[in-house]
Design a protein around this nucleic acid. Structure first.
Length: 579
RNA sequence: GCGCCCGUAGCUCAAUUGGAUAGAGCGCCAGACUACGGAUCUGGAGGUUAGGAGUUCGACUCUUCUCGGGCGCGCCA
């Protein structure tokens, strides 16, 4: 069942098609057609800029564009009133009966309401977190973790097949250092005095893992061939750290469909395949990179190595593909991993990257553009850092001193819901402050609580009415209830009915914060209306003497609960009928 | 030095991708309470959207310059 927004969009597009076909209008970008469905302007229930946008494209001055357009609008089934304002906006009031029909439809849809198929079943790979397996998950990754998970949910809700993927960097020098650090802890357990180098990992979690090795193997490794021992300690460390990481993320209810190991990529032939693809297009050459301008260090010296001609595609300079000693660079391996994703037949790749990787985007997009011939085959969503604030002080972290704050620690202090909610409640590319004191307050200053409370209140009304024998289970007098609803309630209903569009736009823009804005907006309207019932009894929800009026209210309250549940499910936070 | 991101009310953030008078919460000021859940609500003040120039019917949004903040800048990962 199409709602008023769908119908209006469809009409505008068909009307434009017809005009263009008849040479009355010049073609134009349909994305510029906007519908304001939140009635913010209060000059109608919904409004549109269609007239303003299209009038610029008139070719035939004889053609009576305005009258033709409006005649069609008036034929739409939901139009109560429609006019074009002085400035050129189309303002529409909607028949209440039509809104109630939509609410009836919403109630039959339940958790399907708001879902759509704009993704058309596309296979999308969302890669996120991908923190190096050298320690527990820290706060540095928590925003990307929640963001990736919620974007995945948004995509699922809009008709995409989503694979949540984690790339494990278990090769390379960081892992060598990790293995050495672990071995030192193992030595320590056998009574040796150890000293960690500044680049080694000081975390106590390695002591726990070393204990596991000691328990399993005793002193077997104390005097053992070193290369075999090194591999063993590396693998052992990574295996347990990945488990720790999975446990940490499960605290936030984040689960991955697939873990891909860098070692498997390195050991496969995929890097050679990538080499062939790039080489065939003449994008690889031996050359010498220039010295970076900001680098005043003296140890720079020119070196010849294999370079990727990314500057010919999307980057501002070429990038090292092989080290001067002939090994593949990290970038080359990572690019090979992306080729692997491409070979797994995904229609699109989305990476969630932290701010420290933004400089990396052009070269990786260059690779994937070359492979796929599509500009946007790889999409990178970046998120800026989160500053933790406690007792009005910024919590500083320094990796060198090992005093990084773990995800677990923050989780213990605030819990899953505030953590998830706040991580996605602002635009990801702006840096944000996360105040540990404020996010756990249980009052209206806290939007998580405010929205959950709105849900609980609505639930309590429905339950209370049920106790009085009033419910909407077999209600079918939808056509009779419109005159029981006030303007405030109609406005809330309008908002609820715009929810499918909020989801679509949030999904297309990869911006979950649109959902939190929306639910806060509806919650505010709801709490405000609730309070009016305190001063004016006629505005209260339950009236035992007037069953139909009560049912009319219960119907939109139930609709609101459904919309809230759907949003809570996408964001991944809990909801309760009592708090 | 170069590149990317950001700059919106005292503070924390929005603004449906170029739309109408830039909106919320906190804080501040003034009010409301025997309540279908006060874990609340009503009203008010507060803005040259960092600043200048440009593009057009129309700019927080696009272009350009300046200022300020963050991140990154050959073989690390």
């Amino acid at each position: 069942m199409n709602n008023h927004i769908d119908l209006l969009y469809t009409y505008f597009n068909e009307f434009a098609d017809k005009c263009i076909k008849n040479n009355h209008l010049d073609a134009f970008n349909r994305k510029s057609i906007g519908i304001d469905f939140s009635s913010k302007s209060r000059q109608g229930d919904i409004s549109s800029n269609f007239y303003l946008v299209a009038i610029k494209k008139i070719l035939d001055k004889e053609f009576n564009f305005k009258d033709e357009l409006m005649a069609g609008v008036h034929n739409l089934p939901f139009i109560e009133k429609c006019e074009i304002s002085k400035k050129g906006f189309i303002n529409i009031n909607i028949k209440k009966k039509f809104l109630i029909d939509q609410i009836e439809y919403l109630l039959t849809q339940q958790n399907q309401f708001g879902k759509s198929n704009i993704g058309d079943g596309k296979n999308v790979n969302v890669e996120f977190v991908s923190a190096n397996p050298t320690g527990p998950v820290t706060v540095a990754h928590m925003r990307g973790a929640v963001l990736g998970d919620v974007i995945s949910s948004l995509l699922t809700n809009t008709g995409h097949h989503v694979t949540r993927e984690y790339y494990v960097n278990n090769a390379g020098s960081q892992i060598d250092i990790l293995g050495k650090s672990l071995f030192k802890r193992y030595l320590e357990l056998h009574g040796e005095k150890i000293e960690l180098n500044s680049d080694e990992y000081p975390g106590e979690y390695l002591i726990d893992i070393a204990k596991l090795i000691k328990k399993k193997d005793g002193d077997k490794w104390l005097n053992h061939d070193s290369s075999q021992r090194e591999d063993y300690f590396k693998e052992f460390a990574v295996k347990y750290l990945i488990e720790f990481i999975e446990q940490d993320l499960k605290l936030l209810n984040i689960k991955f469909d697939k873990f891909v190991f860098e070692s498997d990529i390195v050991n496969s032939n995929i890097i050679n395949n990538l080499f062939k693809i790039l080489d065939k297009k003449n994008l690889l050459y031996n050359g010498i990179l220039e010295k970076p301008k900001g680098d005043d260090s003296d140890d720079w010296e020119p070196r010849e190595q294999l370079l990727f001609k990314s500057s010919a595609i999307l980057d501002d300079q070429d990038r090292a593909f092989k080290k001067s000693n002939g090994e593949w660079t990290y970038f080359a391996n990572d690019a090979a991993y992306h080729l692997d994703k491409y070979n797994r037949k995904f229609d699109q790749l989305i990476n969630i990257w932290g701010a420290d990787h933004v400089g990396y985007i052009p070269r990786m997009k260059s690779v994937l553009k070359t492979i796929s011939n599509k500009d946007d085959y790889l999409e990178v969503v970046t998120c800026q850092i989160v500053r933790l604030i406690k007792n009005n002080q910024i919590l500083k972290m320094s990796k060198r001193e090992g005093n990084f704050i773990t995800l677990q620690e923050v989780y213990d202090q605030v819990g899953k819901d505030p953590l998830r909610y706040f991580m996605v409640s602002t635009k990801s590319e702006t840096s944000m402050d996360f105040d540990l004191n404020k996010v756990i307050e249980k009052n209206k200053d806290n939007p998580v609580f405010y929205c959950q409370y709105a849900y609980a209140r609505a639930s309590s009304v429905i339950n209370k009415a049920g106790d009085l024998g009033i419910n909407i289970k077999s209600f079918n007098n939808f056509s009779e209830i419109t005159h029981y609803l006030t303007e405030d309630e109609i406005e809330i209903i309008l908002k609820l009915l715009s929810y499918p569009y909020i989801v679509k736009l949030a999904s297309i823009a990869r911006e979950p914060h649109r959902l939190t804005n929306f639910i806060e907006d509806v919650s505010a309207s709801f709490h405000s209306f609730w309070n009016k019932g305190k001063e004016n009894e006629s505005l209260r929800f339950i009236d035992e003497k007037d069953i139909i009026k009560t049912q009319a209210k219960l119907i939109w309250l139930q609709s609101m609960r459904i919309v809230f549940e759907n949003i809570f499910n996408i964001i991944g936070i809990d909801y309760h009928e009592t708090m």
